[in-house]
Amino acid sequence: MHSILIADDDEEIRELLTFKLQSGYEVTAAADGRECWRYLENATDLPDLVVLDVMMPGLNGYRVLDRMQDDDRLADIDVIMLTSRGKEDDIVRALESGATDYMTKPFSANELIARIKRVLG
């Protein structure tokens, strides 16, 4: 079973995604970028995919993504950015930094699930 790490500071989004995804995936949730990074640094079983918010306190999603790309253990993990930042510059920055996909909030949970299925196969 594929595993997914959700990193979003919005508790309702974490709970919604966990509920929607837990029937088909192992789901772990992080409340902010620092918690996400600690999880990734210390995990013995790395997630197959990270759903990553951009605007989080402490350590934003771009910084988490940059750190992942700089770490050989983490660089190949797929990342879907899920954020309210929908400007072209934000999207290009994420994709050029190594994100696999990018979705803006508000979002359709069904569309996100379809994108996750496409990424994970």
Results as ranks from 00 to 15, higher is better:
K87L: 09
G61M: 00
G61A: 00
I80M: 10
V79C: 14
G86Q: 01
T18R: 14
L59F: 13
M55N: 14
I4F: 11
G98P: 10
E11I: 03
P47W: 00
K87I: 06
Q69F: 03
P47Q: 02
A75V: 02
I113W: 10
D90S: 08
D53E: 04
L40F: 08
K87Y: 08
N42V: 01
S84G: 15
L95I: 12
S23T: 11
V79F: 10
K87V: 02
R63A: 06
S97G: 14
L46S: 02
Y25M: 03
P47H: 03
R115P: 09
D10E: 13
D10Y: 11
E35G: 13
I6H: 06
R14K: 12
R93L: 06
W37F: 11
I116C: 12
E26K: 15
K20E: 12
D72K: 10
V119H: 13
D66A: 15
V119M: 09
E11W: 03
L52Q: 05
Y25P: 14
D9W: 03
K20F: 07
R67S: 01
L40N: 01
R85V: 02
I113T: 07
L46W: 07
D48S: 06
N60A: 00
M68H: 03
V51F: 05
L17Y: 04
L40I: 01
V51R: 05
N60W: 11
G61Y: 00
A43K: 04
A30E: 04
V92F: 14
E96R: 13
P106M: 05
D76Y: 08
L120R: 10
D90H: 14
T104V: 15
E96I: 00
Q69K: 15
V64W: 09
V51Y: 07
T18P: 06
I13E: 04
E96N: 13
T28N: 11
D10L: 08
D45G: 11
S108F: 08
S108P: 09
L52E: 02
L74F: 05
L5H: 00
R14G: 05
G24F: 09
D72R: 10
E12N: 15
D8Y: 08
L65A: 01
A109K: 08
N110F: 15
M81H: 12
L40K: 09
L46A: 05
